[in-house]
Design a protein around this nucleic acid. Sequence first.
DNA 1: CATGAATGAGAGTTCATTCAT
DNA 2: GATGAATGAACTCTCATTCAT
Lengths: 202, 202, 202, 202
Amino acid sequence: MGISERKEREKQEMRDLILVESTRMFIEEGYEKTSIRNIADRIEYSPATIYLYYKDKDAILYDIHEQGFEKLSEKLSGMAKIQNPYERLLQMGHLYLQFAFENPEYYDLMFIMRAPMKKLNEEKEWSCGFDNYYFLQDVVKECINAGYLKPIDSELASFSIWSFMHGMVSLAIRERFKMYSEEQVKQLMHDSVRMIVGMMAK
Amino acid sequence: MGISERKEREKQEMRDLILVESTRMFIEEGYEKTSIRNIADRIEYSPATIYLYYKDKDAILYDIHEQGFEKLSEKLSGMAKIQNPYERLLQMGHLYLQFAFENPEYYDLMFIMRAPMKKLNEEKEWSCGFDNYYFLQDVVKECINAGYLKPIDSELASFSIWSFMHGMVSLAIRERFKMYSEEQVKQLMHDSVRMIVGMMAK
Amino acid sequence: MGISERKEREKQEMRDLILVESTRMFIEEGYEKTSIRNIADRIEYSPATIYLYYKDKDAILYDIHEQGFEKLSEKLSGMAKIQNPYERLLQMGHLYLQFAFENPEYYDLMFIMRAPMKKLNEEKEWSCGFDNYYFLQDVVKECINAGYLKPIDSELASFSIWSFMHGMVSLAIRERFKMYSEEQVKQLMHDSVRMIVGMMAK
Amino acid sequence: MGISERKEREKQEMRDLILVESTRMFIEEGYEKTSIRNIADRIEYSPATIYLYYKDKDAILYDIHEQGFEKLSEKLSGMAKIQNPYERLLQMGHLYLQFAFENPEYYDLMFIMRAPMKKLNEEKEWSCGFDNYYFLQDVVKECINAGYLKPIDSELASFSIWSFMHGMVSLAIRERFKMYSEEQVKQLMHDSVRMIVGMMAK
DNA sequence: CATGAATGAGAGTTCATTCAT
DNA sequence: GATGAATGAACTCTCATTCAT
């Protein structure tokens, strides 16, 4: 409880600073404009300093990306306590949308951006969001078993639900819903979730 | 009706040449590799020449993008002749997937990529695919009116269908279905379309 | 005869300019300090310009290096006209020393420096001086056959002679003869050549 | 006889540690890879610490270099006990080659590399191998006086012998004998030594 | 004594773009 | 109309070195 811990904390804070600002930069300026140099400028450190905390540019991206999944997992983990699986499923859909709109930059990186794969792709798994997907499958399975949903293939159902949710979110994030106002989009999204899940219900 | 027209025609031909080759490059090598220099090399003109026909790189991209929508429109326009609207709807879903998998780079540019425009974004409309969307709405409306689909809100239904289709395609293109093999993904996608549309059917 | 030729000539002149100044820089500042940027500064062009004439840094090095061998070959080629092979051999030794002292920077690059081998080593041959070596072997052979030298193995003799010559030159160039004055070194080198070749003579 | 001495001793031990590991790195990884950072990593101290014991990178290199000469001296000093000077001379040649091939990086640093010093070059003497040279001269002198070698100038003979030996070694180390296999080179080198020294013998 | 943190300087390279000819 | 030549501005990354603590 002292120096080493303070140092550790400071180190983490610096990593966070880099992370936060890189992420912000992603959102505001886009991937292309987010260079080590720009990040360095932004945090008012030299480019070389960044390399003290991150091996290379990809490592930053990877961390942001991972953080995103942690954030999402946290959000969804709260769902476990909801007894009724159908209720849980609906709530999850809700939270997914909420997460996407509260953290569009994260969402983008997690589910839309092309992985900046040098070897990241092979070594570590870029799409580390498998857990969430399996979590979804479990809920769907429970719903089916408990008779809340029609007796469809649970894998197929999960696949469809995720695709559908992601479709809405990603079209919104990448601004392909220009034929609607933002308000309308939000409304449509919620109605749409209700409708789709409703149709799956028994 | 002579010189100036010929000039105009020649100018258009050159634009086409650039467009065709940029597109080809874009399709074959991807966005990253498509540089003015590479295009110039390919058409065997100098980079400077390209600037006589296109204001900048974005202008070319914009044209490719537009071309993509034309391609898709063409594909879908063939659908008009299918009398039965439900049949037409299913077929459209089919074609949409087909288009996406035959032209992933186009699809990416059209529906996933962030508009790489500086201000073109504001001047011209990037998402020029409204027509297709309205085309979808019409079909859905017809289906409902003819009693093929449940009496749901046609706008909401179209919104949902497109989102769903796009979700599958974009997750596939940006490689977020790594938990499945390519084979499995294709199978799931087709089954999923059948299921979702089936659920909407009366 | 006209534009295209002038252009070609100008292009060659530019390559030469780069070559000459890079070479000069090698000599004066050493390999380490010779960067694309520094060369650019020196010729008062931008770094990017250099890449219009040379693929990369290695390509420049390779050219300098090649030029060196051409220079040496030219020098030695004049020797062919000397009828007496022993005379020719002595003269060649003379010229070798002369070349080394008139062009220490070339000599260094050709025979001392580590090849900056990315793949150069494998594709093109870095040590393109084989010809000169074979040329030496031929002379030695002739000398032996004509009875000017003892009946030793010609390959072994050539190997020894080259090694010996190179030893003197490289120790001088890399300043390992500090126990002598420059004057003394030159004197010793000439005496040494005479002595060694003398000992080989019948 | 107490604290200050212990401190002095500890300081020396640390210098040794640095030296030993830098040398090892230098030998194993080569000059290019030997950076202050890498050395620091290896001795598990921080880069900054190294600067407490060595003024800069050059100072370390200088010490390695000196160590090389000590190593060589040791090797050669064993020769003093050989009574017969001609025998001693031959044996020295042998050992020189052996040293070069067992420690090519040392050899390179000692006899080939450009002094990487800023002003150390002028202050301290880089080529601290004079002793070895004088040692050679003495042997040669003895050989001549004892009638083993022809009555040539001993200085000239030493100069020639060293040049010759170094020529072979340095061409080999810097890979200019690509026209031969490694095997052939070794064979040629030994034959060559025998031949050259043989020719000097009475 | 030791170091964590930081950096300035510099490396090679690529690209979209401009402009005189 | 076409272009060869040129460039400024970027890029990622590495290194020897310094200094407050």
